[in-house]
Amino acid sequence: MSEKIATASVLAFERKLDPSDAVFHSGRWDERDNGSKWSPVRIRVKSVRGTISNRLKAKGGDAAKLDAAVNHANLQTVDVATLPADADTLRVTFSLRVLSGTGMPSACNNAAYRVRLQNVVNDYVAKHDFTELANRYAANLANGRFLWRNRIGAESVAVEVSRQKNGECVQKLTFDALSLGLRTMDQFDSNVTALGGLIADGLAGRTHVLLRVTAYVRLGFGQEVFPSQELILEKTEKSKTLYHVENVAAIHSQKIGNALRTIDTWHENALESGPIAVEPYGSVTTQGTAYRHPKLKPTQDFYNLLDDWLLKDKMPAVEQQHFVMAVLIRGGVFGDAN
Rank of each mutant, 00 (worst) to 15 (best):
T265C: 07
K297F: 01
A270M: 10
A290D: 15
T262H: 03
H267W: 11
R261E: 02
A290F: 06
I256K: 07
Q254I: 06
H267E: 02
P294L: 05
L271S: 12
V284Q: 03
S273G: 04
T286A: 13
K297N: 08
Q254A: 10
P294N: 04
L271Q: 13
V278S: 15
Y281D: 06
G282Y: 10
A270C: 04
V284D: 06
N269C: 09
G257H: 12
N269D: 15
L260H: 07
G288C: 10
Y291G: 09
G282N: 10
G274D: 13
K295L: 05
P280S: 09
Y291A: 03
P298A: 01
Q287E: 15
L296T: 08
T289R: 15
R292K: 14
T265S: 10
I276E: 08
I276A: 06
L271C: 02
N258R: 09
A259P: 00
R261M: 06
E272L: 13
E272W: 05
A290Y: 08
T262A: 09
A270Q: 08
Q287T: 13
K255N: 01
P280N: 09
P298G: 04
L271H: 06
G288S: 07
I263E: 10
K255E: 12
E272T: 14
T289W: 14
P275L: 02
W266V: 14
L260D: 05
P280V: 11
F302D: 12
E279W: 06
G288T: 06
A277R: 14
V278R: 12
E268Y: 04
P298D: 02
P298M: 05
L271K: 14
A277P: 14
F302Q: 09
T262R: 08
N269E: 12
N258Y: 03
A290C: 13
N258D: 12
R292E: 01
G257Y: 00
D301P: 10
S273Q: 13
T262G: 00
F302S: 06
S273C: 04
I263S: 02
Q287D: 15
T285E: 15
E272H: 11
N269S: 14
P298H: 03
G288D: 04
D264Y: 02
L260Q: 01
P275Y: 05
P298F: 11
R261F: 04
T289A: 15
S273D: 07
I256P: 06
S273L: 12
I263W: 05
I276D: 11
K255A: 10
P275V: 01
Q254C: 05
T262P: 02
H267M: 08
A270Y: 05
R292T: 08
S283V: 09
I256G: 09
Q254E: 07
T262V: 02
L296Y: 09
R292L: 04
G274L: 08
S273M: 13
N258P: 03
F302M: 11
P294S: 04
W266L: 06
W266E: 13
S273W: 00
H293T: 11
L296I: 13
Y281F: 07
P298N: 03
Q287S: 12
Y291C: 11
T289G: 05
G257D: 01
A259F: 00
